[in-house]
Nucleic acid binder design. Structure first.
Length: 490
DNA sequence: AATCCACAGGAAGCCCGGGAAC
DNA sequence: GTTCCCGGGCTTCCTGTGGATT
């Protein structure tokens, strides 16, 4: 259990980070600092259930997937090795929630059965190297073993004390024949305990960590499901060695069985895997399709019933949240964010009901947050390129071309004494800005006048400009006129 | 039909920082 | 500590290209 709480902590950490931001937003918005903490306002009954970290007990429209996962894992309850599972689906389709739900059920059922089943959850976005994955797993089972061992040791020690008082008769109801055996058993457990070392966060050779994990898992009989969330991140960052090692383990384990449950946003990620890993990992593949608008509404309805006070939601609020989120690839997380933000906005302006306007406002705000965040964290050079485009846009130029952007950009670089990148590189940066949705860039051919990209700022241009000036500190370039006559003298 | 513009975007290689291995 | 290796950012050099113009 201690191991699990460690792991959970990682999760809370990430959720906490986003929470911090939203509370900051609210306090700067001039609203009560403690509203969030008190948890109950005229609008909300319990806001927590709208947060991404909350795992509901019921997952609408996912019974098929849940049954599928459960039927695969069920073999673990019989002491067999469950097939490895690979779960696919876009963000906010309930992959992790379903997998966790089934895992909890599995562990709960196993408690009453003969074979212990345990699920080790690892978020590969955070734990993204082979070393860290193995170390985290090893430590979880080391802690687990120690606890079991400690309990057994405690029992034996009280037994020994009883033997001291009552004599050898006290051994009658144990499986130990005599005092020597008892002493030997205690010694053995102590030796085991001393041998079980925690794996440090860094420093050991990777194969030693692997051995530590191996020994810890095999210490007693059990079926272990290693749940690797965002497994594509792990493969992307550190290759498929981890998966290869894990999938091969069963051949050498004596007491325990290990199977892998991988969760991925990316349908294509198995292309990078070793064929052997690919076939072993993909024994069972389960796809989570995006939710459609009505399914999203059901989810929202279920949560809203708990989250909001009776009757504060206007009729059209939930359908609208569902529709907005369905447009974003059926992302339930997004739908819940929308609903929560809409509620917060209603609470902020003191209204007692959440209306359609609040939802639209929330949609705006979330989009704005995204743009702000993206622009703020852009590399310096990309910010300069983007700023060049902003300036040209503000000058009223339409159909901006790569060459023009480059000219302005070069000029801006001089004023911030930065070395300008080559045009080749800037084309790539413009491509990246396009991917991020900050600009729209289309390749057009102007016949005799060449082939270029036509670039324009996308929707949130005012937000983009504001962030560049305020956060990125480009306001100092405001006085610079980057539109010099270029290269007519050459 | 040929030409030619103003780039797009691929290929190869350099440089540098960070992490693993020795 | 140093050496090696790797990946990412970047440059240099290059070939390819759609369509107005000749």
């Amino acid at each position: 259990m201690t191991g699990m709480s460690d792991i959970d902590h990682g999760l809370d950490g990430t959720a906490g980070a986003t929470d911090d931001e939203s509370t900051e937003d609210e306090s700067s918005g001039g609203d009560g600092l403690f509203d969030d903490l008190v948890g109950s306002t005229p609008v909300f009954e319990d806001k927590e259930v709208l947060r991404p970290s909350y795992t509901p007990r019921e997952l609408p429209h996912r019974t098929a997937q849940i049954d599928q996962i459960a039927s695969v894992l069920a073999s673990g309850l019989r002491g067999d090795t469950p097939s490895n599972i690979l779960i696919y689906g876009k963000t906010g389709t309930g992959k992790t929630a379903c997998a966790k739900y089934v895992s909890e059920e599995l562990e709960a059922t196993a408690e009453t059965g003969d074979v212990p089943c345990e699920v080790a959850y690892i978020n590969c976005e955070v734990t993204d190297t082979q070393y860290r994955v193995l170390a985290q797993l090893a430590n979880r089972f080391v802690a687990d073993n120690r606890r079991v061992l400690q309990a057994r040791l405690g029992d034996l020690e009280t037994l020994r004390d009883r033997v001291e008082v009552e004599g050898a008769a006290a051994l009658a109801d144990s499986d130990l024949p005599d005092r020597e055996a008892l002493a030997a058993a205690i010694e053995e457990l102590r030796a085991d305990r001393a041998r079980m070392e925690e794996v440090p966060m860094t420093g050991w050779p990777t194969d030693r960590v692997y051995d530590a994990f191996f020994e810890a898992v095999d210490y007693r009989e059990r079926v272990v499901v290693v749940m690797l969330d965002e497994i594509d991140k792990l493969v992307e960052k550190s290759g498929d060695d981890t998966l290869y090692n894990l999938s091969r383990m069963n051949a050498d384990l004596d007491n325990s069985r290990v199977s892998i449950m991988g969760i991925s946003n990316d349908l294509q990620f198995t292309d990078f895997l070793d064929p052997r890993v690919k076939s072993s990992l993909g024994e069972e593949e389960i796809v989570f399709p995006p939710y459609d608008a009505t399914q999203l509404q059901d989810i929202l309805q279920q949560r809203a019933a708990v989250a909001f006070r009776e009757g504060v939601l206007a009729e059209e609020v939930i359908p609208l949240c569902g529709a907005f989120a369905a447009r974003e690839h059926g992302d339930a997380r997004r739908a819940l964010d929308l609903l929560r933000t809409a509620g917060e906005l209603a609470a902020r302006d003191g209204s007692e009901r959440v209306g359609e306007g609040h939802v639209r406002e929330a949609q705006e705000e979330l989009e704005l947050d995204r743009v702000t965040e993206v622009v703020r964290t852009l590399p310096r050079q990309s910010q300069l390129v983007l700023y060049a485009i902003v300036r040209m846009d503000e000058k009223g130029m339409d159909s901006i071309t790569t060459g023009e952007v480059y000219g302005v950009y070069e000029h801006l670089c001089e004023h911030v004494s930065t070395d300008a990148l080559t045009q080749r590189r800037v084309t790539d940066l413009i491509g990246e800005l396009d991917m991020l949705g900050l600009v729209n860039a289309v390749v057009v051919s102007k016949g005799r006048y060449g082939r270029t990209k036509e670039i324009c700022l996308s929707a949130k241009s005012d937000a983009t400009a504001r962030v560049l000036r305020d956060d990125a500190g480009l306001a100092t370039l405001e006085s610079v006129d980057p539109f010099v006559q270029q290269r007519f003298d050459v």
